[in-house]
Simulated assay, not measured.
Amino acid sequence: MEFGYILAGFVVGFLVGLTGVGGGSLMTPILLLIYHIKPAVAVGTDLLYASITKSVGIFAHGKLGNIDWLIVKRLAMGSIPASMLTLWALHSMDLQSGNVVNTIKFWLGVALIVTSVAVLLRNKLMALVAKEQWIPLAYVPGATILLGIVLGGLVTLTSVGAGALGVTALILLYPKEKITTIVGSDIAHAVPLTLVAGLGHASLGTIDYPLLGTLLIGSVPGIYLGSHMSSRVAEHWVRVALAMILIFVGFKLVFH
């Protein structure tokens, strides 16, 4: 089974490096549906996994000047309190009960479906918003904080949303920013959010540390290889195939 976890880490790392699609939308369903890890443990373990892997990205993007810290601050103003509030709610629940398990699966399914739509429409959306600012500039700061609130609750409950969903929403809010700045800012925000959510899950006892270490063994070379192959592979079609898989898995979880 350990080799299977290493393989899962490698595959997810490779696809993240190749396409930029968030690891949470891939890793949590794999742990849940293939390896039958309990939903809360799959989410908690993946959150710490994400905070570790994305912390590497924050240094890389920071050196390249690809992070707008004002965007990160606005997102965190909403996401960190929302994450802590969600964790407080989880503390008062029996995470093994059928209702809680089904609730996590349902919202994970919803997050996967929304993420897949975001992946499919991102390029078209970028072309549309490049022509005009859809959201009035006066509303952008408040809308960014509101986005942070949504991401904070969703990521803490499902581990999904900090990647493709966050980037797509930021493209809408900040159409004049370069895509590298949007991606870099999203990663910079995802690190503290997944760390806070992950540590909160640690206090709930929903993190499998041996599993976390095993996944990282596979993901590090996977991300490295995927990143170096991204210029040689028609990643658009890989993204489309991934989106189709996420839609299928999402509907399976929602209508379970």
Results as ranks from 00 to 15, higher is better:
residue 157 L to C: 06
residue 170 L to F: 04
residue 175 P to Q: 05
residue 180 T to A: 14
residue 110 V to E: 04
residue 198 G to W: 01
residue 157 L to A: 06
residue 104 I to H: 01
residue 155 V to I: 09
residue 121 L to W: 13
residue 231 S to Y: 14
residue 197 A to K: 00
residue 166 G to F: 00
residue 195 L to P: 05
residue 232 R to A: 14
residue 114 V to Y: 02
residue 127 A to C: 10
residue 233 V to K: 12
residue 125 L to G: 03
residue 106 F to E: 05
residue 195 L to K: 04
residue 146 L to R: 05
residue 154 L to K: 04
residue 99 N to H: 12
residue 116 S to K: 02
residue 133 Q to W: 07
residue 123 N to K: 15
residue 117 V to H: 03
residue 119 V to Q: 02
residue 209 Y to D: 10
residue 111 A to T: 01
residue 210 P to E: 12
residue 102 N to H: 08
residue 147 L to T: 07
residue 97 S to Q: 08
residue 126 M to Q: 14
residue 100 V to S: 04
residue 124 K to P: 06
residue 168 T to D: 05
residue 215 L to M: 09
residue 178 K to D: 15
residue 139 Y to C: 11
residue 119 V to R: 00
residue 201 H to G: 07
residue 167 V to I: 14
residue 204 L to H: 02
residue 158 T to E: 01
residue 92 S to P: 11
residue 205 G to A: 11
residue 218 G to C: 06
residue 170 L to A: 07
residue 101 V to F: 06
residue 124 K to R: 13
residue 154 L to E: 06
residue 130 A to W: 01
residue 100 V to E: 06
residue 139 Y to M: 14
residue 137 L to E: 15
residue 123 N to S: 15
residue 225 L to T: 07
residue 198 G to K: 00
residue 228 H to L: 13
residue 230 S to G: 10
residue 93 M to K: 13
residue 212 L to N: 07
residue 124 K to M: 09
residue 161 G to T: 04
residue 180 T to K: 13
residue 174 Y to W: 09
residue 231 S to H: 15
residue 224 Y to F: 14
residue 179 I to R: 06
